[in-house]
Every structure is written in C-alpha cells, then in structure tokens.
Amino acid sequence: MIRTLWAALIAALPLTAQPNLENATLQVLPVQGNVYILLGPAANITVQTGKDGALLVDTMLEPLAPKITAEVKKLTPLPIRYIIDTSLTADHIGGNAALAAMGAPGASVPDGGGATLIAHENVLNRLTKPVTTSLTPANQHGLPNDEYATPTKDFYFNSEPVIIFHEAKAHTDGDSIVLFRRSDVISAGDIFTPDRYPEIDLENGGSVQGLITALNHLLHLTVPEHLQEGGTRVIPGHGRICNEGDVVEYRDMVTIVRDRIQDMISHGKTLQQVIAARPTLDYDTQYGSGGRFVETVYKSLGGK
C-alpha cells in the first residue's frame, strides 16, 4: 500500500522540483563511536552502523539515494534498517522512499516492506495534509510508518540505546533529535544549523521560543570533556561536526536576537521598523542575511 503510494507520488513530483544533483559529491566523516556524518548538497545525514545494520537520520534528496547507499555500503555490508526523520523539511526527507526501499525492516514494519521510517506523528500528519511552505513541497512520499506521539521514543540498535526526543514547536512542531547514548552523539536536525540562521517554519508549527527551548534541551543533553572540548558530539542539520561549545554560541545568538526583537515589540515597533533597526547586524557576518530570520522571530513573538 505504502509502496504504491510512494510510486504514485514519485511520478507526481514535478521534475523541476528536483535540483540537478548528478555531479554532487558526498563526504563521509567519522564522528564518534558507531556514528558517522554524511555531508552533501542537502541536509546532513547521520549514519549509525553495527552488527544489526545501518540506521540513518534524515535522507537528503531522492536523486542522491544511489550515492547515499553506496557510501553507506562502504561503512557496512548490512542493510539500512531504520530511518529517522528529524522534521518534515524537504531536504531532510527527500530520500526516504528510495533509501527505505533499498533497506530491510527494523523491529517494526507495518507492511513488510523496506526499512522502518520513524518520525513524530506531526510529521506524518502534516505530510498527509500538507501546508506548502518554502521548506516543504506540496507532494511528499516516503511517509513515516512508525510515528510516535510521546515526548520520547527509544529502542536498542547496534549495541546502544537510541533515544528520540520530540522538540515541540521549534523549527516545526514535528522536530526530533536523536541521541546515540553509547556513541555519545546527538543528531539535532534543523534545531541547530551553525552555518546559517535558523529556519523557523511558522506555518508548520515552529516558534522561536520553542527553538530556544530545544537548544537549551540540547545543551542539557551534551556533556563536554575537560575545558569544554569534545565530549558529546552534535551533528547539525547543516554544517560541520560540533559539540557543546558550538551549540552555546548558537543558542546565545538566537536568545539575544529574541530579546532585542521582543523589546522592540514591547515598544510598539512595526515589522518594518524592526527590520530597519537591524537587530542581527552583529551576527550577519557569521550567519548570512538576517532579514528572513528577523521577520519570523517578530511574527513568532506576536508582533503585529
């Protein structure tokens, strides 16, 4: 049933929606323990390997699926058994269908098909009744078949606990972060994107306060080694391998910008006045143009 749905949706996807990725190259770097990062032209993929097979967090874009599979096969000859989506954002879940089809079932598989696809239920709900935004295309396929609705979900895979935390109303309302407890690595999705300002998808349930709460939760989970170095590694939605010190810098930025815009709203400033005041001036050289971020924070805080 699901496979039929995937096939229909693949056919329905406009070709123009798929960027030309023929020449795209992927890079795999070890992170810690059993965990690797796979970098490419879309969102990062986290790969965990071991005696049970491979687990992927996020899947980039569909055209990259063969290259992703080839890279995973270099790490393990065993099949992909689990895929966890950190959100519904297009460049995180585009390869769901193709990669799941090449995999084998994990512990739970309703239809006996490929790899088990896990996400928070809000991801499934929104994908099956999509609100199209700049981040999420109208048509989706590769839908989660093992969604969860609780604050956490955990299972044991490749000799370590895998703990999924739902981060409510952050980047979207269906965000998950994934802790690999023995490897001591967290895959953070678009909660944390150290190379750019956060994308807060208000139409799909995101909020700046939820994002700050999620970043503080992420800091609560990370434990550095001596002198704030190393320890728990964090794989961001986009960007390089990080740890707590990097998350602190990012959390501070989001919090400080929130404080500034909140203050301006309390003084009755309009969106145009807030944008003109350039509340991200000191961070634009690090994260890029802050206009879109300012607008979403303003609206998220109830600015009129």
Binding site: Q27, Q228, E229, I241
Partner: peptide
C-alpha cells in the same frame, strides 16, 4: 582536516 571536521579551542 576537512572543513566539516570538528573545531576545538586550540
């Protein structure tokens, strides 16, 4: 190291 490798204080 590659650009995407971890950064440290040292």
């Amino acid at each position: 190291p590659p650009a995407a490798a971890e950064h440290t204080f040292q």
